[in-house]
Nucleic acid binder design. Sequence first.
DNA 1: ATGTCACCTGGTAGGTGA
Length: 255
Amino acid sequence: MKLATWNVNSLAVRLPQVLDWLQQHPVDVLVLQETKLTDDKFPAADIEAAGYQVQWFGQKTYNGVALLSRVPATDVVKNIPGFPDEQARVIAASVNGIRCVGAYFPNGQAPDSDKFVYKMSWLEALQAWLRAELQSHERLVLMGDFNIAPEDRDVYDPVAWAGQIHCTPQERTHFQGLLQLGLVDAFRLFEQAPKSWSWWDYRNLAFRRNQGLRIDHILVSEALRGQISACEIDKLPRKNERPSDHAPVIVSLAD
DNA sequence: ATGTCACCTGGTAGGTGA
C-alpha cells in the first residue's frame, strides 16, 4: 500500500499534473493541500474518472484539502473537532484500516505575527486531537504540508533561516510533540540523500540552485512502523512547466 | 536582487499570502 501527500498550490491550475502523476504513481491514498477551491468547484468527476474516490473540504482563495483513495474512505472528519476554524486545513478518513489524516498546517508568516499565534494554537489543538485519535486508531498516518522544517539538516541554509518561520524553536518543539505521541518521521527511517527538500521558493531560481526546505512530511504510528518499506520525495513534478512549489512525498507499506 | 505564482478586487494595476 502506498500513500502520498502533495501541496498543489491551486488544484484548478494543477489538476492535469495531479492526474498525470497518478497515472505514473497509482498510489492507494493521495492527500492534497492548497486546493484553493470552494466545494462547489471541486473537480470530483475528473478525479473519479481517473479511478479514485475523493473527499474534499475547501474554501475560496486559500487553503483547501482533499483525500483521494482507490477504495472508499469512511468516517470522514473535516478540520480539528472542537477547534472552530474558518480555514479549511484538515481532512481525515479511514482507508483499508488505516486512519489517514491530511493536513495543511498554517504557514505562520513571521514569528512576531498574529498568524504565528494562530499557528501555535492550531498546533496545540492538532496534537490534543491526535492524542485522542490514536487511542481509537492504532494504525494512523499524518501527512501533509507541515510548514515546519524539523531540523537544520532539513534547511538549505540553516544559519540564514535560524529563528525564521518554519525553523523557530517553538515550531520544532511542536513537531517533536507529535513524535512524542508515538509517531515517527517516515522519511528518516531510511538513508536519504543530503539536501533533500520538499519545497523550493518560486523566487531566486531556488529549484535550479536546490535551495529548499523539507516541510512536507509523513508521520506514521508505532503500530505501522514495522511495515514501512520506503519513503521518498518525488522531485520530478517540480521540473514541470507551471509546477507547484512543493513536491509529492510517498510512503510505502508492506502488506 | 524578495529575481515568482495564484488569487482577489475592480479594473486593465495593485494588494495579499505563500
